[in-house]
Amino acid sequence: MLDKNGIAKRIAREVKNGYYVNLGIGIPTLVANFVPEGVDVEFQSENGVLGMGPFPYEGEEDADLINAGKQTVTTLPGASFFDSATSFGMIRGQHVHLTILGAMEVADNGDIANWKIPGKMVKGMGGAMDLVASADNIIVAMMHTNKAGQSKLLKKCTLPLTGVNCVKKIVTNLAVLEVTGQGFKLLERAPGVSVEEIKGATEGRLIVEGDIPEMQL
């Protein structure tokens, strides 16, 4: 079973040379730490920066330089700043190659819910609806089950949707799955996790074909 860093490490392998990548808040942010040497990518933060770098050294924080999670960040050589309309223009216009974000629920048709729990949590969708509606390649990073132990990979989302038929791949603490028209196709198992365990933790349709390899991290 993977921890959050393990999920991020596995997703980092999906990040290819030359990609512009938008990372959501939480586990996705950790992906930046695991992109291998020699893979040249630029991270986009939707509040208006491309070429985002790591957190600043203490004492070098700049209130005018934050990421979409409102954390102080830095820029790398080649970086640029732009306004919010331009930022979502590059997202909507599919110039950003890969979006990695968290989710509360994913359905086996690719629907995603991650912005609202009616009566409990209404913080807003931020840029998530624009990102999932526009990106060609969307990877969800999340735990396979919620804190109550219930599956987050469902036949149908129960929470208000963020987007429809959009998620392409899911990396959880248990597995890597591809969203196909027919359901979640199991691609890889996390180290030490059996196919049976994954079946037990998945409420939506699960497709298991042949031997399922263990993830290479």
């Binding site: 309309a85 979502f88 969708m125 931020g126 609806m129 624009d130 509606a133 429809v164």
Partner: peptide, 29 residues
């Protein structure tokens, strides 16, 4: 949605009364 919010501003700035976006399609938005 954040991109829609930004575009609703830019549209107002540029004299465009409305626009189409994929954001929020199929959701309560």
């Amino acid at each position: 949605p954040q991109g829609t919010l930004a575009e609703k501003c830019r549209a107002a700035q540029a004299g465009i009364p409305a626009f189409f976006t994929p954001a929020g399609y199929g959701t309560e938005v």
